[in-house]
Write a protein that binds this DNA or RNA. Structure first.
Lengths: 136, 136
DNA sequence: GGATACTTTAAAATCATTCTAAATAGATTG
DNA sequence: CAATCTATTTAGAATGATTTTAAAGTATCC
């Protein structure tokens, strides 16, 4: 059973053309759970499912989704750009050994004081990264 | 007037061999103010000062300094690894247009509640990045 | 000073990502 | 529905940051 219909609605609303590739990737990403993906990891997943798709297409698609506001870019980890399907303001645990990201429930962190911004600037986003490693 | 003596002490304490290149870079980095550098930016600065040094040496040196605890790695910005001479726990403004980082005074941020860590993990470090852009 | 181990170096290799140019496939219009 | 227009896909080349390699150089220890 596919999300096809939801994905199609979503792409239409975002003003993106309905291509097979975008629908397929949309179905993968926007299921029940929030996901963190890189172009590479997503491409591997797609190949495992028996579909052929150029790596460049995966990059294009992720960037288009991001531009359309369907994905959020997360702090790069080990030089790899990670996209997050969770658009709400939230923070991450980063496993420094594996590069794996885990969402931190928003309610568990609160930033009491915020510094004043530099003159003439506005905040685009904010992200707390808690780097964790296996206990020694 | 050079920091030579301080740098030499620092390298010795860190158990690093005293090479011309490390002393030169040490002098550049550990002056009065805290600095954010990438291998590339540091290499350019060195060339401007009329010194020749292989880019790979700059990479090696930064990594050695980092391993020895003299530098902190900061969240990568646009795929570029940035090293910070400020080892204290602190946060950054990131100018999304230029990639420039600015320290946020520690006292200006406080994280009220901290989430509990995943089982069997310990915190290595923590960093809040506030992405800012010129006001529209 | 000479042996030994670590560093530096230039160049090649690697890895993630982007670009290119041609082929393909949505969208639009008559 | 066909013709046309334009965006997208694709394979492969190109780019840019970083790492590796192997050889030459240099700090350290005896």
């Amino acid at each position: 059973m596919s999300d096809n219909q939801n994905t199609i609605e979503m792409l239409k609303k975002a003003g993106l053309r309905l291509t097979k590739q975008r629908i397929f990737i949309g179905d993968l990403l926007f299921g029940s759970k929030h996901k963190h993906v890189s172009a590479e990891s997503l491409h591997k997943q797609i190949e495992k499912l028996g579909k052929k798709m150029a790596l460049a297409t995966v990059y294009n698609c992720l960037h288009h989704f991001h531009k359309a506001g369907l994905l959020k870019k997360v702090n790069a980890v080990n030089d790899i750009i990670i996209f997050d399907t969770n658009l709400c303001y939230h923070h991450h645990f980063l496993n420094v050994d594996t590069g794996e990201l885990t969402d931190i429930d928003e309610s568990n962190v609160s930033i009491a004081e915020l510094p004043s911004l530099p003159e003439g600037f506005e905040t685009e986003s904010m992200e707390l990264t808690i780097r964790v490693k296996p206990q020694t």
